[in-house]
C-alpha cells in the first residue's frame, strides 16, 4: 500500500519538477513547485516524519510559496530572453552523465545499521521537540535570530527609500 502511494507521489513530484523548470510563464513554475512540495510532504509522511509533513504543508507550501505567488502577481508579466535551442539537450546530457557517475560511485558505499528500534515515537512531535530543545537548542536559537534578521532585512529593503536612485528621486521631488 505504502509503496503504491510512494510511486504515485514520486511520479507527481517529477512531473511537477519538470513543470518548474520548463514553464515559460513564472506563475506556472510557482504552481508546479507547490505541487512538488505537496508530493514531498506525503513522502515525508511515508518516511515516518509526521511533524515535517505538517510543517512542509503549513510553512513551506502554505507561507513561502504564497509569498512567491504574491511576488509573481506583483511583478506582473515578465519577459524572458530566449535561450539557445540546443541548451536543453546539452543540460540533459550533462545531468545524465552526472547521474550515471553518481550511481556508479555510490554503489560501493556500505550501509550502516539503524541506531534505534522503537518506531512508535520516531518522527513525532514529542520526539522532535525533545531533540530541538535539549541537544539542539543552540542551533534552534540561532535559527530564530536568522529569521529575525531576515524579517528586518525584508522590511528595510521593502521601504524603497534607500539607494542612490531613490535619493535622487526624492531630491527631484523636493525640488
Amino acid at each position: 500500500m505504502a509503496a503504491v502511494i510512494f510511486w504515485v507521489m514520486a511520479v507527481v513530484a517529477v512531473l511537477g519538477g519538470i513543470g518548474v523548470v520548463a514553464s515559460r510563464q513564472p506563475i506556472r513554475s510557482v504552481l508546479s513547485l507547490v505541487v512538488v512540495m505537496l508530493a514531498l510532504a506525503v513522502e515525508f509522511l511515508i518516511l515516518s516524519a509526521q511533524f515535517l509533513f505538517a510543517v512542509q504543508i503549513i510553512v513551506y507550501a502554505g507561507a513561502v510559496m504564497v509569498l512567491f505567488l504574491f511576488v509573481v502577481a506583483l511583478l506582473g508579466p515578465m519577459k524572458e530572453r530566449r535561450q539557445l535551442r540546443f541548451q536543453w539537450g546539452l543540460a540533459l546530457l550533462v545531468a545524465l552523465v552526472f547521474g550515471g557517475f553518481l550511481y556508479s560511485m555510490l554503489g560501493s558505499v556500505p550501509f550502516r545499521a539503524p541506531q534505534r528500534t522503537a518506531l512508535s515515537v520516531f518522527g513525532t512531535v514529542q520526539d522532535i521537540a525533545y531533540g530541538l530543545f535539549t541537544k539542539y537548542l543552540y542551533p534552534f536559537e540561532l535559527t530564530s535570530v536568522l529569521l529575525l534578521v531576515a524579517a528586518i532585512g525584508a522590511i528595510y529593503l521593502s521601504r524603497g527609500g534607500h539607494g542612490i536612485q531613490a535619493r535622487r528621486e526624492e531630491d527631484d521631488r523636493r525640488a
Binding site: F98, F101, L102, M105, L106, S108, V109
Partner: peptide, 13 residues
C-alpha cells in the same frame, strides 16, 4: 559540489 562529492565518496570507498 560535484568534485567534493566525488572526493567524499572516493575517500569512503
Amino acid at each position: 559540489a560535484l568534485v567534493a562529492l566525488i572526493v567524499l565518496v572516493a575517500v569512503r570507498a
